[in-house]
């Protein structure tokens, strides 16, 4: 394996790599036109938005051990919050996305309060059930287009200094939010709260015995993740300029879960890596064959048997090791 050797030999390079990636991502829209890659600015923007949602899922799943199979539900709540606010006449992006964040968090608080009483597979299934309820609700909501979806064709305003209609500006805003969310979750994961959460993941009974308010700690994490997923949903709504119930379907929740596990559960770089690889492969495979599902299936099996800790584990043998699937 070349990476661990590289990592041990050049620890400085590894530490600086994130900044390099961030810098590359930041200048990408400026370079894209000369390289003829305008389309990929939008593509990377989508990867970043999905990575925000995946990072929040990685937080509760990888560090908190809460295997939620309904995360797309919160994404949908965020997206439909933007739709509802736009329908009500709101034109400020910050207000709309802020609303997405708040309602994503509220939905997570309600769902979490009920769901977190269950464990393991029951938790997987009850979160799925709630997401399905939201899905069917959205399908039958005539005001917001139901199954036909709802178009958001007027770009939202981002205040006097930012041109909300400019795709590159939106890209940088998404990049800044993604970097912020990423840094925040990385930091929280290593805070006292993060350690408590990991303690609960590894041995809940012990944490209860030690006097930790386990339920409240878990709920706090769940709400934070729901809020961030809601925010991602709001961004996704603006990115797609379109919202439909399809984004809440259980397969979307499953895909998000798959991307996180693929990248590496509880690994700092797991979520963005998994999302980037999955979406890139999907994009590339679809272009070349009608049968584009099975190679992805084979990839999943390969990961399960040859890289069980996910891709991030291959890259970061040192550093963030506390995580990982049990």
């Amino acid at each position: 394996m070349a990476q661990p050797a590289f990592a041990t030999r050049f620890p400085g390079a590894v530490r600086r790599l994130p900044w390099l990636v961030l810098a590359l991502l930041a200048v990408f829209p400026l370079l894209a036109p000369t390289l003829g890659l305008e389309y990929y600015v939008g593509f990377v923007r989508r990867v970043l938005i999905v990575a925000i949602a995946a990072t929040s899922l990685n937080f509760i799943l990888g560090y908190g051990g809460m295997a939620a199979l309904g995360h797309a539900g919160f994404i949908g709540v965020g997206a439909y919050t933007v739709v509802a606010l736009v329908e009500a006449g709101v034109s400020s992006a910050w207000l709309a996305w802020g609303g997405a964040l708040v309602f994503g968090g509220l939905a997570a608080a309600l769902i979490g309060a009920v769901s977190l009483r269950t464990r393991g597979v029951y938790f997987i299934m009850i979160t799925l059930a709630f997401a399905q309820m939201l899905y069917y609700l959205a399908v039958s909501l005539r005001t917001y287009g139901g199954d036909d979806g709802y178009g958001l064709y007027t770009p939202l305003a981002m205040g006097p200094w930012l041109d909300g209609a400019h795709p590159d500006v939106f890209y940088w805003v998404v990049l800044a939010i993604a970097a912020g969310v990423f840094a925040l979750f990385s930091r929280v994961a290593h805070s006292r709260y993060g350690h408590a959460l990991r303690g609960i993941r590894d041995n809940e009974t012990r944490m209860v015995a030690l006097g930790y308010p386990v339920f409240r700690l878990k709920l706090a994490g769940f709400v934070a993740a729901g809020a961030v997923a809601g925010l991602a949903g709001g961004l996704l709504a603006s990115h797609n300029t379109f919202v439909s119930p399809g984004m809440m379907h259980w397969t979307q929740s499953a895909l998000l879960l798959v991307m996180v596990i693929l990248g590496g559960l509880g690994r700092r770089w797991g979520a963005p890596l998994g999302v980037a690889l999955w979406l890139t492969l999907e994009e590339a495979l679809k272009m070349h064959t009608d049968y584009w599902h099975w190679p992805l299936g084979v990839l999943l099996l390969l990961v399960v048997f040859h890289a069980p800790q996910g891709l991030a584990a291959l890259l970061e043998r040192r550093g963030d090791r506390q995580g990982g699937a049990a």
Partner: peptide
């Protein structure tokens, strides 16, 4: 990975 993206894109 970004580099790979770029290569594919090119």
């Amino acid at each position: 990975l970004q580099m790979k993206n770029l290569a594919v894109a090119l």
